[in-house]
Amino acid sequence: MKIEFLDDKIEINNKIFTNLDKFVIDFTSILKKEKIEYVIVSGYLSILFGRNRTSEDVDIIVSKIDDKSFEKLWYKIVKNYDCVITSDLNNAYENYLLKDTSIRFAKKETFIPNMEFKFPKFDIDKWTLKERKTVLINKHEIYISPLEIQIPYKLFLGSEKDIEDAKFLYNLFKDNMDIGIFNEFNIKFKTKELFNRYIK
């Protein structure tokens, strides 16, 4: 596997795209065109870098925008996607996003895969958005969570699948992470023991 680390970017070339990769690139290109900041978190990150499993959804944290900006974005998205939670834009914004509940967008006439779309809720969400990492996959640019927080968070979630994802990402990126920050998050999430038991 060849992953290059250039400045603050992670570059991976000659990857054969999965349908999930294409789904992510297509959706995030809309956000990019509309200049909406986002960060992809959770399960897709391990799949992006080669873990052999699927996911029915991709988790994305999008910077909190006002209702007018959301309306503009909504109409761009629903040209090719359906919101499978509610078809009402105001309901999506007022009763879901502003109440810290995610909405989901899938390609028209489908349900899976879908983009689980939410605004930042916790300080860690805001930090993750602010410190997001650029990934170039075959020159397509997407933004992902820093691994320094993603791995401990996965351990915190604690299912077997999450621990496996954490181990997978740590094995790939341990020599290219800020270990100080990583250790800090392991302490903050109280995942040091899990890390020592399953990953180190």
Partner: peptide, 28 residues
């Protein structure tokens, strides 16, 4: 680089809420 506060209780609450949302999604 300053790292953010982590409120474990709130995150555990969120885990439960998120799990319920995922169950609701399965219904849909």
């Amino acid at each position: 680089m300053k790292t953010p506060n982590v409120n474990i209780k709130e995150l555990e609450k969120f885990k439960k809420k998120n799990f319920q949302e995922r169950l609701d999604f399965i219904d849909k």
